[in-house]
Design a protein around this nucleic acid. Sequence first.
DNA 1: AAGTGGTCTAGACCACTCC
DNA 2: GAGTGGTCTAGACCACTTA
Lengths: 233, 233
Amino acid sequence: MTSTSLNSWEAVRAELMRRITERVWRPGERIPGEAELADEFGCARATVNRAMRDLAEAGLVERRRRAGTRVRLDPVRKATISIPIIRLEVERRGQAYRHKLLERKLEPPTAVVASRLDLDRATKLLHVTSLHLADSRPLIYEDRWINPAAVSDVLDEPFDKSSPNEWLVRNTPFTHGEIAFSAENARAGESEQLGVEAGSALFIIERTTWTGATPITTARLACAPGYRLLSEI
Amino acid sequence: MTSTSLNSWEAVRAELMRRITERVWRPGERIPGEAELADEFGCARATVNRAMRDLAEAGLVERRRRAGTRVRLDPVRKATISIPIIRLEVERRGQAYRHKLLERKLEPPTAVVASRLDLDRATKLLHVTSLHLADSRPLIYEDRWINPAAVSDVLDEPFDKSSPNEWLVRNTPFTHGEIAFSAENARAGESEQLGVEAGSALFIIERTTWTGATPITTARLACAPGYRLLSEI
DNA sequence: AAGTGGTCTAGACCACTCC
DNA sequence: GAGTGGTCTAGACCACTTA
């Protein structure tokens, strides 16, 4: 029995979710239309729509015009991961943050970096390597290339005070980007900088960002053993 | 100059985003209210609200009742990651998928597993280890514990045809869960099963899911070297 | 061709929070 | 207390598909 009058979209979502998890509506099955549900719940269609959109974004149902809404056969759950400034993440854990600039020079990109940024190998980029420390222990080794043509004033920025990670986030908003997570055995230089044994498993984050069609920066973050990325689903 | 009449919420969002990335509205600064913007754009307030909500979810602005909307000082960008059934992910890459059951027994959980599922160590759980192969090469080693009290019929399921990963997704919808990503050096058993050198860096996915207050399952997926998780931001 | 979800509007009330 | 975002409503039109 459904209590009549579910007037908040969250209540509607909860009821829809109940019917899905309890198999009132089976996987692959078609769900009644928005108008019908709105009528049943005693609310406006927009309210049902809001709830349904949320479930669709979460990957529980599949919606298509004309074809209606179906319970997904293979629920593709989506996890959202926040990507904060490293300093803030460290401080949130109650640790002392420090940043150490290792190297900073203008040089032509490697082939891999050039292709990733879709740039010519001739134009020099700003190459910055640095270390992020938590309570004086190395946490992340950052290897970054920045396109000076896209970031005004970056050539005047010494990166001695704030890391390129933080400086860029604050000074150069991007429109879109790519991020990849993987695992790699520590390379020679990395293990030394991070103070871990050669070959230790490192969590690798690779990020490339753009503003419109202009490449901004690409970075490879090697995280010390123990690093975990968490999310709710 | 703003062209008058931005009537779709995506057009509104694009214009708002432009003003943020081009520093028309600076970080930390307060943005005009929804009513004012709706007036300027010649659309309904709900349309501005829709666009703003999207930017807030993306982490670009911060909204609070009464206090208004501000451009975030530290944009916390959010990446959404899809978590599909492994078989589908392999097939999407055009590879042949195969699943191999390694072991399946009812036994008391380890202390770690018991605490993760918030269960007593006395109650036996179904412990299943298996291997996911792509083109006959080991891709993922799965170590999973299932709470039989929460999953009817699981004790009758041999898992010889479909993997526990797939079977559970199809048969036991969950309401919420946790997921964690990390990197670890391959343990003895893992390196053997995955056919890689001992100590290779593996990408680790740990997942625990619940239905309401009832724990369903917890799993540890060890992914062979080369595994990458991608996302747009 | 027709039915479905996607969106917009204009107006309203409410919840929260800062002053 | 007052101003802001959060949400709901009732109605409308549109875009997309598929029957």
